[in-house]
Amino acid sequence: MERIPILKMGPFLLVTIQVDMHDRLAQTLQDDLAERVVKDGSRGVLIDISSLEVVDSFIGRMLARIASISRILDAETVVVGMQPAVAITLVELGMSLEGVKTALNVEKGMEILQRSLGVETGGDENAHPEN
């Protein structure tokens, strides 16, 4: 079965969507991510959509659901790399992706995830050596 690969990077999961997903593929990604968050004990999910030329209401909803599911499973989700034309279209479509953290690129997204870990382990001097 066709699947979007999920990479593990330390405490985080990284997904780069590079194909024009049909609905079932998007649904499978959502389910796979939920399972991997639990199985790997991941604390964050980073989804890179910079290759996506279209995000319609179905994909938009999937992104929002991934964020909600991950949150319940104690992981943070950040969606990165949205193209400007996609952002303009999504808002006009009526989707504001409320509850979904976003960042301009992978690097900034990773910073958000790292910070979310740092806040939670604030008492651990190894997590925040600069403080």
Binding site: D56, F58, Q83, A85, V86, T89, E92
Partner: peptide, 10 residues
Amino acid sequence: QTKMVTAASE
């Protein structure tokens, strides 16, 4: 283009 493709998808 993006608007038209998105409308088509919906």
